[in-house]
Design a protein around this nucleic acid. Structure first.
Length: 315
DNA sequence: GGTAGACCTGGACGC
DNA sequence: GCGTCCAGGTCTACC
């Protein structure tokens, strides 16, 4: 019999809406169970991994059931990891400010974006999303968990820690996880993170300026302007866009922008400028709205079918 | 500062 | 079943 935790949430929190708000909810070890509207994955602790299933009670509180007993410090750590994934600590004032600036999302309540339990997983997931189509990103994350992740008591595997990946051979990452030329970059990022040279506290500190964070991120191996912008939104910093080919498709098909790709990129930057500190959210929910208009609400997406092909290039 | 080409994987396609 | 082409962001060399 494992530990069950009850976690209070802000009154506007909606598990189905707020988990299924960013593509990473479809990447291993995350698993959204459509039938039961339950979120499942393995969380990492110093003493070993634990699988958890989380659903929302009618009161709004979350019930998190683990496959083993957690001690007090692990319970505290679990609460912190869950709060980060679901952005439970997003301040109400910040959401009001976003909806005031961009009222399109006030009715649905969209404001939170799903992310990983820690910064390291978000960085690696972003690297696996660069220069590949979405199905390859899904495969890389699945294999990273299968090959390098630790197994929980119930037999499911978690995302490998920085410590583990720092000690993994590049040949293993390339040969068995199929990450291609990202192998050395992933090991280098893991070493930097494990040594504390990538400091999640500094990156998440509201006192650290966005410009300094961006400058630091693009100095890291495998991180360019797109990846840095994406990692910034995963840090809760929405002042920058993460523009890629998906953005170009959105600009052409939804926003009716024309011109060369570089001209469209400049138009996009100008288009979202009025949303200031919230521009990534405005951009992303526009994109997400388009996906849902084609495939239905994200909380109904089957991981094996819609989940493998939800980018606009496949519509 | 801008640009061309290499880096890999996996899917689509033609034969 | 095999070979070719293509999509995708970062990095390096070069102008």
């Amino acid at each position: 019999m494992g530990t069950t935790l009850s976690i209070q949430t802000p009154s506007d929190f909606d598990l189905a809406r707020d988990v299924c708000s960013y593509g990473y909810f479809l990447l291993a070890p995350n698993h959204w169970l459509v039938d039961s509207q339950t979120f499942a994955r393995v969380l990492e602790f110093d003493a070993g991994p634990a699988a958890v299933k989380i659903n929302q009670q009618p009161t709004g509180a979350l019930r998190a059931r683990f496959d083993r007993t957690l001690d007090r410090s692990e319970q505290s750590e679990a609460r912190a990891q869950i709060a980060r994934m679901f952005s439970l600590d997003t301040h109400a004032d910040e959401i009001v400010a976003f909806h005031t600036l961009d009222p399109r999302w006030k009715k649905s309540g969209r404001a939170r974006l799903f992310r990983s339990p820690d910064v390291f997983e978000d960085i690696i997931k972003t690297v696996t999303s660069c220069n590949v189509t979405w199905p390859s990103t899904i495969n890389m994350n699945r294999r990273l968990c299968e090959v390098c992740g630790r197994q929980s008591a119930s037999g499911v595997r978690g995302f490998p820690s920085a410590k583990k990946l720092a000690r993994t051979r590049v040949g293993t990452l390339r040969g068995r996880c199929r990450v291609g030329y990202r192998d050395q970059r992933i090991v280098d990022l893991a070493k930097l993170y494990h040594k504390g040279e990538i400091d999640p506290v500094w990156l998440e500190d509201p006192g650290t300026h966005d410009d300094d964070v961006f400058k630091f991120l693009v100095s890291l191996p495998g991180i360019g302007p797109y990846a840095a912008g994406n990692i910034m939104q995963l840090l809760g910093r929405y002042s920058r866009l993460a523009l890629d080919t998906e953005s170009l498709r959105h600009a052409k098909s939804v926003l009716a922008m024309t011109g060369t790709d570089s001209a469209i990129m400049k138009k996009l930057a100008k288009h979202y400028e009025p949303f200031g500190a919230h521009k990534f959210r405005s951009y992303w929910f526009e994109l997400w709205d388009f996906y849902e208009s084609k495939q239905g609400p994200a909380h109904t997406w089957d991981r094996e079918t819609v989940g493998t092909a939800f980018t606009a290039s496949n519509f």
